[in-house]
Write a protein that binds this DNA or RNA. Structure first.
Lengths: 195, 195
DNA sequence: ATTACAAAACAACGGATGTCGTTTAGTCAT
DNA sequence: ATGACTAAACGACATCCGTTGTTTTGTAAT
């Protein structure tokens, strides 16, 4: 009664602390070895936590990766979009594409080459979050079949950005140039999808 | 020397047999319980094989799923495209979209609701194989940046088809109608991507 | 300060995983 | 048919997983 702090923010400091420790340890380990070789034990040992404590917070290491990717990418986009975010559709799109490129290339650089399990999770999170930022704009413009469009656009953007991020450095194409290449195609989706 | 059968086909019949048994058992189990609940033990018990034998053929159950999805979807497309496959680009595209829809809806229907691990693998395989069938056509037409285009198109198609397959039955939209909706957008990618 | 509550620590379990080295059985050329 | 070769089958092992129940410690309101 005494406070107006939203319930979502009033998290037990112990939880914040533990989650952060797990994030940090996990991130550190990703710099040492590939995702598939990291065990839950490794993570908890590195963070001086009990292994069972891990499972109080995440169902498994995949969930940890998901949460971590989602949080980082959301922050990435938010800072990229600026405040207030641009209203113009193509400006927003460009910012999203650049954010995706930067984020994915940072991941590719900062993680010891990760195998099979790692990439699908990054993929799906990037897609989902691009969609998350795309959807309101599409609704505001009242386009036809917004769900379908959001899916196609977010998948296409994520695919392009991921492929770009996998080209070996130094990359011949800058994110800006890539954005110019794919923006027209993505925008055409809006006008092309029939109601 | 005596034979002109390509080396790839000359597989030890034992290998074919074992792989097929694993496929069958796995497929049967997928009808009973979710992917995440199926253990390698389950699969090998059902197929009356030793568990270690499984690992002689696949690195884990995810690899088995990948191989199975890839094989089935390739067959699906091949029969759908007909023989000889149409040369016209939009005809090929339409066939690919329909094949993806049918395949995914078959999976959705025939498998006990599958969790986290299942879908990403299906996704990535469907994308990869659509790309596989798309690429030659793009190269033949000599479009700009074929890799980028193939990625964006295959991701967009896979995303649309997957979303469609997740709408509950009876579906309000037929695959043919969906194909009509997304074909223009996908085709525009070709003309829109700048060199 | 006291109290009620919620989370972390810890030990321990049954079970699944992935990998050995050895044995067995299919396959192909002669 | 035979025999050499190759690869599949197998049993067993150490490890990791995910869960459970109990104890301890940190947190926030009275």
């Amino acid at each position: 009664m005494s406070t107006d702090i939203p319930a979502a923010q009033r998290i037990d400091p112990r939880i914040r602390r533990t989650r952060q420790m797990l994030f940090q340890s996990f991130h550190a380990l990703l710099g040492e070895k590939a995702f598939d070789l990291i065990t839950v034990q490794d993570i908890t040992e590195h963070s001086t936590l009990n292994r069972a404590t891990f499972y109080d917070h995440f169902t498994d290491k995949y969930a940890l990766l998901e949460a971590m990717i989602a949080e980082r990418f959301r922050n990435y986009i938010a800072t990229r979009l600026g405040d207030p975010p641009p209203v113009a559709c193509d400006k927003r799109l460009r910012a999203l594409i650049l954010a995706a490129c930067d984020f994915l290339s940072e991941i590719a650089a900062g993680c010891k080459r990760n195998q099979r399990q790692f990439e699908p999770i990054v993929e799906s999170q990037v897609k989902a979050i691009i969609r998350e930022f795309l959807m309101p704009a599409l609704l505001r413009h009242g386009v036809a079949q917004p769900d379908l469009q959001a899916t196609m656009m977010s998948w296409a953007i994520a695919g392009a950005a991921l492929e770009w991020s996998k080209t070996p450095e130094p990359r011949p194409v800058t994110p800006e140039v890539l954005a110019e290449s794919i923006l027209p195609a993505v925008c055409h989706v809006i006008t092309a999808v029939k109601a």
